[in-house]
């Protein structure tokens, strides 16, 4: 198998923020990451490791202090519909119905009403919320809102879905359902997914590759390839072994130095 040229390529990116006292604070130091087309990559790490910073740079919300980011070989300079983003929560427009939220991207790109309606219906169907088209976000449960957020990103036909702890705010049962659905959508649409999480179980269940990060300063510590076939069995010995290994990557080295 020849390696496919990367869809996303971050080369030695560094992000320095101003801390509250005005001193420079290293959110991310020298991070390099490549994501292949169609690949599912999970990024895991404790808070403060810069995983969200990295995702926001790929999305085009932040410009790195140093280093370069490329999408299909072209520098990333601004957000764009080819990179769909799903946030943790509160990202749906509260003043729009579910349908209007899903149609938003199409509308902004000047796509006609009939086609918008048609596509929005199709993608709401895909996430199982066709019946909720005329509801407002505040009338939906947390899980339904995230399904709408996924539909709103997918309807633009992005090449990658950037997900920033998208299931962190929903209950455990809903979370497991959403994970199953996400895998189904990923397999159906054959797009790349970059998925941020602080949950080891979630990372192993979803990712083909797990990028482990550590904090202060935010750096990429290691990468673990997960070769288990989908759907993955949380009860299997291999799953448990990987869980222990990632856990050790996350916490182990930190403890040794203390």
């Amino acid at each position: 198998m020849s390696p496919a040229p990367p869809l996303i390529e971050a080369s030695s990116v560094t992000q320095i923020f101003a801390a509250s006292d005005g001193e420079p604070s290293w959110a991310l130091k020298n991070a390099s990451l490549a994501v292949a087309p169609g690949e599912f990559v999970c990024i895991i790490g404790p808070s403060g490791c810069g995983k969200s910073t990295l995702l926001h740079m790929i999305a085009g919300f932040l410009t790195p202090t140093e280093g370069s980011l490329r999408f299909r070989g072209r520098p990333i300079e601004a957000p764009g519909p080819e990179r769909g983003v799903v946030f943790q929560e509160y990202a749906l427009f509260a003043w729009m119905t579910v349908r209007q939220n899903v149609e938003f991207g199409l509308k902004m790109r000047g796509i006609g009403k009939a086609e918008r309606r048609d596509k929005a219906r199709r993608f709401l169907d895909v996430v199982g919320l066709a019946k909720m088209a005329d509801r407002y976000p505040h009338e939906l449960s947390g899980g339904m809102r995230q399904r709408v957020a996924v539909a709103r990103a997918l309807v633009n036909e992005p090449e990658v879905l950037l997900m920033d702890e998208p299931f962190a705010a929903v209950d455990a049962i809903t979370r497991a359902t959403l994970q199953d659905e996400l895998l189904r959508l990923w397999q159906e649409f054959r797009i790349s997914v970059v998925f941020i999480t602080h949950n080891i179980d979630e990372a192993i269940f979803l990712g083909e590759r797990i990028v482990v990060m550590s904090a202060h300063p935010g750096t990429i510590r290691s990468e673990v390839r997960i070769d288990l076939p989908y759907p993955r069995d949380r009860g299997s010995a291999e799953f448990a072994r990987l869980y222990a290994r990632i856990g050790a990557e996350l916490y182990g080295k930190g403890k040794e130095t203390r």
Partner: peptide
Amino acid sequence: VHPIYLRSAACLGAGRVQTLLWVVLPA
């Protein structure tokens, strides 16, 4: 206006004026 709204609009392809009209004012 919550920055997440502005970021959502930007990554869904909205321009400055569109963001103002459809996102900033309603928010």
